[in-house]
Amino acid sequence: MSLPTVILPGYLAGAPPYREMEQALQSLGCPAVTVPLRRQDWFPTLGGRSVLPILQRLDQTVKQVMQTTNSEGINLVGHSAGGWICRIYLGEVPYNVHPSDSTRVCLWKAHPVVKTLVTLGTPHISQERWTKRNLDFVKTHYPGAFHSTVRYVCVAGKSAYGKRSFGNWFTYSSYELTCGQGECWGDGVTPIAAAQLEGAENLILEDVWHSPRPGRLWYGSATVASTWAKYLV
């Protein structure tokens, strides 16, 4: 059986949409728990503010799961922004880039207990000014697959090509805001180039979309999860 896995939802997402992913992993013998977030838990982070509230909930969930399972190690799965937030959680540099956190505990040093980090459609780079402070912190202190004891697996979807057209405006704009180029492939939100890390095991999955929608595959769909779950052994 695999180590227990903690799933961190993406930006502005609560836990319920990740039940599908949870169940898919459990059916494959990978015990999984989603950080019990609600959409409103993200509101204090809006406008590029500190993601400390999310990191605190992640830490609480990891400790609870490790205690409940009596496990000395754990896997992390971060969807979208959850992926780069997990990279902060692994590190040994205080995350105190926001004045509001100057008197708070902003350091978790979780890399010794995390065996594998899987990021799903995570924008590891961004040109968006509200995100840059947080992502610049990650890129500066933990570039690429930084911790040698952690297995980094970065999964990108290839389902939508960005074009300058009315029906494709959101995808094009999202890609351009993320990597500086709108005409490229990605999952409809995150371009492939931004979802990969140097030194990681980088996977590109055909016809996989960023978020769950009826009638289409996303990272948490059972058939898709079975592909990247192999790395959680």
Results as ranks from 00 to 15, higher is better:
55 L>I: 06
41 D>W: 03
136 D>M: 07
107 L>R: 09
52 L>I: 05
204 I>E: 13
150 V>H: 10
215 G>T: 08
121 G>S: 04
147 H>P: 01
105 V>R: 14
19 R>G: 08
173 S>T: 14
104 R>Q: 15
150 V>Y: 07
139 K>R: 15
113 V>M: 12
177 L>A: 15
45 T>C: 04
97 V>D: 10
190 T>E: 00
13 A>N: 10
119 T>K: 05
208 V>C: 06
205 L>G: 02
130 W>T: 15
17 P>L: 01
201 E>W: 09
36 P>C: 11
135 L>D: 10
214 P>Q: 11
53 P>A: 13
72 E>I: 03
57 R>W: 02
223 T>P: 00
175 Y>F: 06
16 P>A: 07
50 S>T: 12
110 A>P: 00
3 L>G: 00
138 V>T: 07
157 G>E: 04
187 D>R: 05
216 R>A: 01
2 S>F: 06
160 A>H: 13
124 H>I: 00
18 Y>G: 06
217 L>Y: 09
115 K>C: 04
31 P>K: 11
107 L>P: 02
141 H>G: 11
31 P>S: 10
158 K>N: 13
167 G>E: 04
107 L>N: 03
210 H>M: 09
162 G>T: 03
83 G>T: 04
171 T>C: 08
216 R>S: 08
25 L>G: 04
197 L>C: 01
33 V>N: 01
44 P>I: 10
151 R>N: 15
187 D>G: 07
127 Q>T: 05
113 V>A: 07
23 Q>E: 14
225 A>Y: 00
149 T>R: 15
164 R>Q: 14
169 W>M: 15
24 A>R: 01
167 G>A: 05
87 R>L: 01
215 G>D: 09
165 S>Y: 05
210 H>R: 07
25 L>P: 02
24 A>I: 02
145 A>P: 07
